[in-house]
Write a protein that binds this DNA or RNA. Structure first.
Lengths: 225, 225
DNA sequence: AGAAGTCTCAAGTAGAGGTTGACCCTTAGC
DNA sequence: GCTAAGGGTCAACCTCTACTTGAGACTTCT
């Protein structure tokens, strides 16, 4: 009886109360129903009690999130979860970014009005993200704009390492949006993918607008003290 | 009977057969039902016949698409379509130091098109920051814009608690700038304070631009996988 | 041993999303 | 002006999803 007794297993009631915070309308009978519909398959004790692993718990959370936030019907959620095929494979360079011309380091520095030392530093802190191609770094146009902004900030005494936080914040915010539109973007239905791109665009605008407003408010508070 | 007879208007049966190709399960009764549910509002003849404009047709297509491909319930589609009233890009960004009129909760909710429950939630997570004055909460104009953005994000299933990160990021970024200009702003010398405000403004723009660019880059990466 | 928790299975419920039918009115074409 | 084809409302009905409830029996914990 060695196998898997290590990892903590949860009974249905425990699972239910754990999720009650995030999903107030969970219930024991609902969990059973979801199993009945083929969305969950918890282990069982010899006596027939359901035992939920951490993975089961996570899966259940995903189900509830898709249901609550994406309004997906269970039938669709089942499909979504059944196909881990959504993982990569597709080197589709679609949409949002049409193919952009790329720059090398010298061009970037010239465009941004910075020196290579600063560029190297920016790269070190993840503010520039070139792709390497045959030993050569290639920068997107966007990176030049980023470098320009950073260069000007540097003139105020704000070094790249201070700016790392900007990047991680942007990444986190994008990650949030990913959670929302990711499934659509990876959908098999091309119409749904297109809609996903549209949502991505809209959410991007909204998110950008929001952080802009919040940032501005914080600054104003700063100004008025 | 001169008015508006120029643009071609369609009867319900025509609309129905036009859409039959793309949406086989459309029906006259369904269109009527959608109107009943407040999703459509076609004009009427004196006799009471529905008359659909091209815009109505487009709107109907959108509804059917959202329903079929995104599985959105009508209630959500209605919201979705009702909101783009927020279309106006307000570049209004009054100077940092200026006095702004304030709003109370009701006004805020109305301006942002959200309900008080959401407003309360936003406040809970620090996205709205009213000042309390004699037991009354007073919101800045900026808060209304923030609430508007959050409301729209909520329609995408992004709840206030997911947005807390946006605020903390904005605060951290503002804090960074504070470190640079803070001393000037608190200086006794008014000339130096003025210069500090100018720097604050410039740094604000730069910081905002930077996080915008970084966010955009992260999204593009998302779009191209 | 006993209380608290869980099991299954059948039946019931609430709401979304329409459909159907009865009955009457409009509109376009002759 | 007549008439056929199409449209209007309204109430009742229907189907499907997503659960809930209750009865009766079993399991687990202490």
């Amino acid at each position: 009886m060695a196998t898997a007794s290590k990892t903590r297993m949860l009974t249905i009631g425990t699972v239910c109360s754990l999720l009650k915070d995030d999903f107030p309308d969970i219930s024991i009978s609902k969990i059973r129903y979801l199993e009945d519909q083929g969305l969950l398959a918890p282990r069982r004790t010899q006596g027939g009690y359901r035992l939920f692993s951490e993975d089961d718990l996570e899966r259940l959370e995903t189900i509830l999130r898709l249901q609550r936030d994406e309004f997906l019907p269970l039938r669709v959620i089942r499909q979504e979860l059944a196909s881990p095929a959504a993982r990569d494979r597709k080197r589709r360079r679609a949409g949002l970014g049409e193919e952009q011309p790329e720059l090398d380091l010298t061009e970037l520095c010239e465009r941004a009005g910075i020196d290579t030392r600063l560029a190297r530093e920016l790269e070190e802190f993840g503010l520039l993200a070139p792709r390497t191609e045959g030993g050569e770094k290639r920068y997107a146009e966007l990176d030049a704009d980023i470098a320009l902004a950073c260069g000007r900030l540097a003139q105020f005494g704000i070094a790249p390492r201070h700016l790392r936080g900007f990047r991680t914040a942007a990444d986190r915010e994008a990650g949030l949006i990913e959670q929302v539109v990711g499934p659509s973007l990876r959908a098999r239905n091309p119409e749904r993918r297109r809609a996903g791109m549209e949502d991505l665009e809209a959410l991007g605008e909204l998110g950008q607008g929001l952080s802009q407003l919040l940032f501005w408010r914080a600054l104003r508070r700063l100004a008025s003290t």
